[in-house]
Write a protein that binds this DNA or RNA. Structure first.
Lengths: 207, 207
DNA sequence: TTGTTTACTAAACACCGTTTAGTAAATTTG
DNA sequence: CAAATTTACTAAACGGTGTTTAGTAAACAA
């Protein structure tokens, strides 16, 4: 029966159409500007149709988050290519920061907004971030094993480095850096990159 | 004319009644559970009345944010009392982390949610965070001036330390630490406190 | 006592996510 | 091929949101 296969394919294509519309709407209009009704409008279907392919909005945003993590993983693969673990770690951090600063809404969906994480409770594990995370983890593991970092525990190193980079991006994107006076937004951005490298020097193994 | 004074006082009292209802609703029900209609219900007035005292919901949440920062400043004043700048810095970080982990919704309003920051654009400066921020700034300034930190620039030290602590809290409260396996939530919490002290040791001036 | 200001609200507007009941077309069955 | 059934879709409604408008009753001032 080739019919049921075609139907399955068509169902998948429809789901992708919804996902793609949601993704580009999210990038262009952000979290608040992305509604089920507007997505339905964009693909020229009724709002109720979306619920034939996604249980609820959280589930749809979970898939959008997945697309965002795919993007980040692709950036890592392209930009963090050094064979030296410490250099690669620096490249990862730099790429991560740049990604967070240039795609603030996507970054929010990946690391801040609750909505997509409501799905994870009903799921075995949170797989969306896995590939990008492993990229970071493996690099840090290599660095720790070669005694290039002041950390002895890999997991502690990962959490620390991740938290530092995320903290900078998060405070920047949420405008909380406004407590501190800066000459220009560019000066603040430059400082963020500088502090990231400074941090990596602080945690570098002492000579 | 004592009448206009009484009226001004009554107006202020009403604004406080709204603010208090919003604050306790925010603590108990969180961001999503706090609506203008429910606040109006709680103080037994119509929703439209709230708009006679606050321009919009953002402005109300800005004042709730202010109350939250007052709380944090009071915690700092009570818990970070050591005369040694570095010890005081450790106490501040520990208090900050504990505050963020025990009051996740308030913390989100202070450092994550956009809503209250929409007001700041129309304001000269963001004053809500000033007192608590100065507490941290002054302590770090004292540490830098006594060469107790590997930082030479005060502002760089403040941003780095703040970003690290915020990164840990933010990733924890948004459940993003789920990419990493932990034996229990308590183990993760313990790790957060441990990494904070480890970080302060990494940025401590080398002997 | 009359006129005016003040404090408040009912009702509506325009959105939102989601569900239900129904329709028309595609597919399967006899 | 005709009838029965499944599939894909939607109009309309439900209950919620922030916010505005028009109107009312009480308090105050003249």
């Amino acid at each position: 029966m080739g019919i049921s296969e075609r139907k399955e394919r068509e169902k998948q294509e429809m789901k992708e159409r919804i996902l793609n519309a949601a993704l580009s709407m999210f990038i262009e209009e952000g979290y608040e500007g992305t509604s089920i009704r507007k997505i339905a409008d964009a693909i020229e279907y009724s709002p109720a149709t979306i619920y034939l392919y996604y249980k609820d909005k959280d589930e749809l945003l979970y898939d959008v988050q997945g697309e965002a993590f795919d993007k980040l993983y692709r950036v890592f693969s392209e930009e963090a290519v050094s064979k030296s673990p410490m250099k690669r770690l620096e490249q990862i951090c730099e790429s991560y920061i740049r990604f967070g600063l240039t795609h603030p809404e996507l970054y929010g969906l990946m690391f801040t907004y609750n909505s997509p994480m409501n799905v994870v409770d009903d799921l075995p594990i949170w797989t969306n971030a896995e590939a990008a995370f492993r990229f970071l983890y493996d690099t840090i593991e290599a660095s720790v094993q070669r005694d290039l970092l002041r950390f002895t525990d890999i997991r502690e190193a990962v959490v620390s480095i991740w938290a530092f980079a995320h903290g900078l991006i998060s405070l920047h994107n949420s405008c909380r850096m406004k407590v501190i006076p800066f000459d220009s937004p560019e000066q603040l951005e430059q400082l963020i990159y500088k502090l990231t490298h400074q941090f990596l020097n602080f945690v570098r193994a002492l000579p």
